[in-house]
């Protein structure tokens, strides 16, 4: 665990010393504040569109941070050859993957805290209310979702040679899951033969990240908190998928030759 936390610490340090996060945060804040400054029909109490757009931007930014950070971790270590002095120390490849995962995931969590604090401020300024339980559930589910995304990008970084192609594939896959993942069974119902079976297999195989993404609607439209039981189910589901993807990444990486 010591090695994992040490590697994670370096990843976090890297994230806050790079400019990606700050640029995305400033962009999100600017667009939200710009939209917030518009008065529609002389009404100051309109808030849901602002919450909606702000959450959309937070989701997009967090996905960009998660995928780009995770996708470059191992390829960058190999390209800059920093992996050699690191693996020449008593560090297992599994520990390296876990450290990278934990670092990226925690870094995403820290970024989420900053983003959601801003979101909370915007909401409170208009609604004069802070539904802390709903916010907590939303941040948590968002973070769990990013865990799966980070694990996916890490697995991709071992399979695909170039970080850019891996990041693109991850973006496409995540966007597909978010927008169509939950509807694949309906699509499969309308298909016959092999195509229908394939779509069904994909439906049951993919991590259903749309659960986590759609939860923002509950916050935007003030539906109150999610049933804790299902919140817990979503948490375990996300963690299991992350674990599964990380195991696959470890299996692919553990016997791979690294030539210095």
């Amino acid at each position: 665990m010591n090695n994992i936390s040490a590697i994670a610490g370096v990843v976090i340090k890297e994230m806050y010393r790079r400019k990606d996060f700050y640029v995305l945060f400033v962009l999100t804040a600017l667009i939200t504040l710009l939209l917030g400054s518009v008065r529609f029909f002389n009404d100051d109490l309109i808030v849901r569109y602002l919450k909606d757009v702000c959450l959309l931007l937070i989701w997009m930014s967090s996905l960009v941070i998660a995928i780009t950070t995770a996708a470059r971790q191992i390829p960058a270590e190999r390209e800059s050859r920093t992996i050699f002095p690191l693996l020449a120390k008593p560090v297992g490849r599994g520990e390296l993957i876990m450290g990278k995962f934990l670092g990226c995931w925690l870094a995403c969590g820290l970024a989420l805290l900053v983003f959601y604090f801003f979101f909370g401020m915007i909401t409170a300024s208009r609604e004069h209310a802070w539904p802390l339980v709903s916010f907590f559930q939303e941040i948590w589910l968002h973070w769990i979702c990013l865990g799966v995304v980070v694990a996916l990008a890490l697995l991709g970084s071992i399979i695909f040679a170039a970080p850019s192609s891996n990041a693109t594939i991850c973006f496409v896959a995540v966007a597909f899951i978010l927008f169509a993942g939950g509807h694949l069974s309906h699509l499969a119902n309308g298909m016959r033969g092999m195509a229908g079976i394939i779509v069904y297999v994909i439906y049951y195989l993919i991590p259903h990240l749309e659960w986590y993404y759609s939860a923002q609607d509950l916050v935007v439209h003030d539906w109150g908190r999610i049933d804790w039981l299902y919140w817990g189910v979503a948490t375990i589901y996300g963690l299991l998928y992350s674990g599964f993807l990380l195991s696959a990444a470890w299996l692919a990486f553990r016997r791979r030759s690294l030539t210095s």
Binding site: E14, R81, F84, P85
Partner: peptide, 13 residues
């Protein structure tokens, strides 16, 4: 202790 032929370390540290 290992010293590789070409040394590259984390640029941000």
């Amino acid at each position: 202790g290992y010293l590789p032929e070409l040394t590259y370390y984390y640029k941000f540290l």
